[in-house]
């Protein structure tokens, strides 16, 4: 469960530069840092098993 301020932080961090040349999805290690900054830790918020990097 997230509160509104946590969700806003994720929205700004994820999408704040989406309309710019350098925009990209955060890498898994960056995602861990972003989640931890607002107290989202543990296996549920660990994207390391995500295979996205295998496709890039």
């Amino acid at each position: 469960m997230l509160n509104l301020n946590q969700l806003w932080y994720l929205a700004v961090t994820w999408y704040g530069n989406r309309l710019t040349v350098d925009s990209r999805r955060p890498a898994p290690d960056e995602m861990v840092e972003i989640f931890a900054k607002i107290g989202l830790t543990g296996p549920f918020w660990d994207p390391q098993a995500d295979q996205w990097h295998a496709a890039t």
């Binding site: 509160n3 509104l4 946590q6 806003w8 549920f44 660990d46 994207p47 995500d50």
Partner: peptide, 26 residues
């Protein structure tokens, strides 16, 4: 209804539920 005003969401007593673990979003 949620409102973003002056670059911030207006306070709202709500919670947001995530059903899928981050590793499986995609």
């Amino acid at each position: 209804t949620l409102e973003v005003k002056d670059g911030q969401p207006l306070p709202q007593p709500c919670v947001i539920h995530f059903a899928v673990p981050a590793a499986h979003w995609w």
